[in-house]
C-alpha cells in the first residue's frame, strides 16, 4: 500500500494554526516583531543602508550632535558616523543575543528532557549539577567565565551559552516531568514503545513549546549580558562596532554629548524590550502557562 491509496480526510487546522490566530490578536507583540524584523534586516543589509563607513574616523568631527549634516545621529569620540555604527553594531549585538540562547536551548532541552523523563538518580545527578551553575547570578557567572576564558567573540558566546543552559534545562525538566505523568505517555508505553521513541514521538512536541517561549525571553538578557561583557572589555574588541562596546567608549562623552552617548544603550533597550514583548505574545498565543 502506498501513500496514494490513503483516502484524504478532513484536515484540522491543528495547534499551530490556532497559535497563529491567537498571535494575530496580539497587536503589541506584532509591533515588537516588526521592530525586531527591521533591526535584523538592517543588520543583514548594513553594507547597503549604512550611509557611511562605520570605521572611518575624523578627528575634526568628533562628538557632533544629532542632525549634523552627514551625521544624522551625530558622531562618536573618534568622529565616526553613529548611525552607521549602530546599524553595523546590530550585527554583533543580535548575534551575541541569539546564538548563545539558541545553543543553550538545544543543549538545555536535551539535558532537561532526559533528566525529566528518566527521573530517579539520573535526574538528581543532572539537576543538582545544573543547580550549582544556577546558584550564581547570571551576570557574575558570565563575567567569571569570560574572564577565565579570555576576551573575544567566541569566548563570550561560549560563556553566555554556559550561563543559559541551567535555566533552560530546569524549565525543560519540569515541563517534561509533568508530561511524563500524563496518561498518553502511559498509553504509549502500554503500546510497547520504548523510552526513546516515547520521548521523540510523545514528549518532545509537548515540551518544546513552553521551553521555546522561555528561551525567547532570555534573548534580551543575553543581549544585555553580551553588551555588558563588551563594556567591561571581556567581549568584542575595538574598533568593531558593537552596542555594548560603543556604550563603553562613549561613556566619557556623557557630559559633552549626552544624547549621542546614550544611543547605543537605547538600541540595546529597544531591541531587548521588543524581544520580551514578542516572547510574551508567543507565550499567550501558544497558551503556555508559566
Amino acid at each position: 500500500m502506498s501513500a496514494a491509496t490513503l483516502p484524504p480526510v478532513a484536515a484540522s487546522p491543528g495547534y499551530w494554526a490556532g497559535v497563529l490566530t491567537r498571535f494575530s490578536r496580539e497587536k503589541l507583540a506584532i509591533a515588537a516583531g516588526i521592530v525586531i524584523l527591521l533591526i535584523i534586516l538592517a543588520a543583514i543589509f548594513a553594507d547597503v543602508i549604512a550611509p557611511a563607513d562605520p570605521s572611518k574616523a575624523s578627528m575634526l568631527r568628533r562628538l557632533k550632535p544629532l542632525g549634523t549634516p552627514g551625521y544624522p545621529l551625530g558622531s562618536d569620540e573618534l568622529g565616526r558616523d553613529m548611525l552607521s555604527r549602530l546599524i553595523f553594531g546590530a550585527r554583533l549585538s543580535l548575534f551575541m543575543g541569539l546564538v548563545p540562547v539558541f545553543i543553550a536551548f538545544v543543549i538545555g532541552s536535551l539535558i532537561g528532557i532526559s533528566a525529566g523523563f528518566f527521573g530517579g538518580r539520573f535526574n538528581t545527578l543532572v539537576m543538582r549539577t545544573v543547580d550549582i551553575f544556577y546558584a550564581f547570578p547570571s551576570v557574575l557567572l558570565a563575567i567569571a567565565l569570560s574572564g577565565a576564558l579570555g576576551a573575544g567573540i567566541t569566548n563570550s558566546i561560549l560563556s553566555l551559552t554556559i550561563v543559559f543552559i541551567p535555566p533552560i534545562a530546569r524549565i525543560a525538566e519540569s515541563v517534561t516531568a509533568q508530561v511524563r505523568g500524563m496518561d498518553y505517555v502511559d498509553a504509549a508505553r502500554a503500546s510497547g514503545a520504548g523510552s526513546w521513541l516515547i520521548i521523540r514521538a510523545q514528549v518532545v512536541g509537548n515540551v518544546i513549546g513552553p521551553v521555546f517561549v522561555y528561551a525567547t525571553s532570555l534573548i534580551s538578557v543575553a543581549m544585555i549580558l553580551a553588551s555588558g561583557l563588551s563594556f567591561l572589555g571581556l567581549g568584542v574588541k575595538p574598533p568593531t562596532p558593537e552596542w555594548g562596546l560603543m556604550l563603553n567608549t562613549l561613556r566619557t562623552a556623557i557630559y559633552v554629548q549626552p544624547i549621542v552617548a546614550v544611543l547605543p544603550g537605547a538600541a540595546i533597550f529597544i531591541t531587548s524590550i521588543a524581544f520580551n514583548i514578542l516572547s510574551d505574545g508567543l507565550r499567550s498565543a501558544m497558551e503556555v502557562k508559566s
Binding site: Y15, D183, Y184, D186, G205, N206
Partner: peptide, 8 residues
C-alpha cells in the same frame, strides 16, 4: 489526558 494534544 490520555490523548497527545499535538497528535491527530
Amino acid at each position: 489526558a490520555s490523548l497527545n494534544p499535538r497528535m491527530t
